[in-house]
Design a protein around this nucleic acid. Structure first.
Lengths: 334, 334
DNA sequence: GTCGATTGTCGAACCGGTTCGCGTCGTGCG
DNA sequence: CGCACGACGCGAACCGGTTCGACAATCGAC
């Protein structure tokens, strides 16, 4: 079951078997055939731990995602799936870890015990201690999203500011004059959650440029919170005729709140924002939104990380995606 | 950075450091303190690959989930998250693999190369070649869902038959006489997908018991498919007044289709089924449904697997969950 | 016919842990 | 007082691969 057994049965030394497998030194046609034969008969596969110990690479990537408790969005799952698939294409496994820095044991295990060759970090903050830590110890990683100072790091991300801005412009073009932003929850903004901050920034700037009256709200990640948020919006300014949401989980609640307030979408009120495509299509009316290309992000993240692992001294690269707004049925003229 | 370095600085042998760490043999108070001191200074952590090679255990669990392409449901993500968290509590990592048996390289890697100590299998089929394979080679695993013959295996699952049945009874109690089942897609049934089959079985049986007129439908995992499915249902029998869905992804489309047909939920038409709780609450009106306890399933699966790993000869155990139907707003009297 | 390069193979060392057997103390007991 | 035993620590072997240096055989060129 191990390489010695294969060697014995093939009548060669262990090193010859190794070379036959890796091709790092020439092996005669004849003995290679013999070895391959024995391997096929035995169903031999080299032990990953032994290999990892010998050559210092585990062929495993770490995927660090936010601790649960909070629920996950559909977008995150698509992302995870595509990471696993892309990694598999490069012959890497993916092991999951909840983040949390010092406190988190699983996170410490991955790094400290060298279980992974590199890592992909989700849910980035503008000032992110995980990023700082990885950078300091020169551990290869790619982030999903970018920090406030992303110059020297590898990342893939979505231009939330541009997306939020184009949502605003779309509404302005339709004649809306008073709009609201439904952002992620308070605590995520407080810790500097990237997408929430940049989305807010893009929204605010674009609204100002177009001279719109704009209010911004933080909203819990649930339907109930979304419902409450709409009530608040309409209470604060009943002349509001449109909203942009960065909060996917609240979306159902937003629709419900509007219905309860007697505002018909899209005739009396327009809704748009950033969301996963198939989620947007689930809503009625279907949401006009910038579709987050989660699967593509995952693929690109793996690509970048693999490249970084292969070329440790390469200069940092990144991909900033700006998906277009998919026009569906939730927005209309003011 | 390795155990030899620690030993040297502490002035002891490598084996003493190892014993101090594992506690498998007594070490004097004094030298243990010294060793701990050195370890703290160096920030030493034992190399996982070396340890795995030496003692034959990787401290990693495999989580085998369905290949993408099809999108994932929110329920699956909750499940994955809870698995990772529970595993972390037992000092296990989790590595992901898409399933697919012989074809799939990542799957082969996990097993053949001994990257994981055991596995959790999602998306079980009534006759499942992965289960057969694992059983044959005596590889420790736990399934989510049960096969047609689950007697000698370890599993956690939901009683889809009972759940579907109680949905039907709920509708019958409300006076509905003609009901429909919206199942998962055709191809999943063809390959013997467990939840789809057992749900179908429970639905059919309960409908017969209550003397209901019942039709069953297969429906793609998308809003568009759900919309089309409702149209078909109402076309086939316009007197239908309620439906049960096993298809979470189609739910939004079902609602939309009903609205388009002028059937108001819950006054003209009742909808119920099996879905994740927070998804059910997203819909308007909120879905009366059996809430899938995904997080609990994940936790239990890890518990079982860890127990199986610790006691290889223990007799198989399982957990069959039957969550109650949460009464919300999508069903009403006929 | 000799030399050098190339090809093919082997043995040994190494990666960084764990574990077994043994030796050396110190101690309590008969 | 002698002996057995427990506590403590060490060295060596082992887990299953990879890789380096050495060596024999083959081959072409001069």
């Amino acid at each position: 079951m191990n390489i010695g057994e294969v060697a014995k049965r093939a009548g060669v030394s262990r090193s010859t078997v190794s070379y036959a497998l890796s091709g790092k030194r020439p092996v005669s046609e004849q003995t290679r055939r013999k070895i391959e034969q024995v391997i096929a008969d035995l169903g031999y596969r080299p032990n990953a731990s032994a290999r990892a110990l010998a050559n210092g690479r585990t062929s495993t990537l770490g995927l660090v995602f936010p601790p649960a408790g909070g629920h996950y969005t559909g977008m995150q799952l698509d992302f995870i799936g595509s990471v696993v698939e892309a990694a598999s294409a490069y012959d890497y496994d993916v092991t999951l870890s909840t983040s949390g820095m010092d406190s988190d044991r699983s996170f410490q295990r991955l790094l400290g015990e060298r279980r992974v060759d590199g890592a992909i970090l989700m849910e980035i903050r503008l000032e992110d201690d995980r990023v700082d830590h990885f950078t300091r110890v020169d551990f290869p990683f790619v982030t999903i999203g970018r920090t406030a100072h992303p110059e020297q790091t590898w990342w893939v991300g979505i231009d939330h500011a541009a997306l939020a801005a184009s949502c605003v412009r779309h509404l302005a073009d339709l004649g809306h004059r008073t709009v609201a932003l439904v952002n992620r929850p308070e605590h995520l903004l407080r810790v500097g959650y990237e997408s929430a901050h940049r989305g807010l920034e893009g929204f605010t700037k674009a609204a100002a440029e177009r001279g719109l009256t704009a209010r911004t709200y933080r909203c819990g990640d649930s339907a109930a919170a979304g419902e409450a948020c709409v009530a608040q919006i309409l209470h604060d300014d009943p002349t509001t005729t449109a909203l942009v949401t960065l909060n996917e989980a609240a979306l159902g609640g937003l629709y419900r709140g509007l219905a309860e307030a007697g505002r018909l979408v899209p005739h009396d009120f327009s809704v748009t924002g950033i969301a996963a495509g198939h989620w947007a299509e689930t809503m009625t009316p279907q949401l006009t939104a910038a579709d987050v290309p989660a699967a593509e992000l995952g693929r690109l993240a793996v690509e970048l990380l693999v490249e970084r692992l292969d070329h440790p001294d390469a200069t940092p690269r990144h991909h900033l995606l700006t998906p277009p707004i998919a026009l569906r049925a939730s927005t209309g003229p003011a």
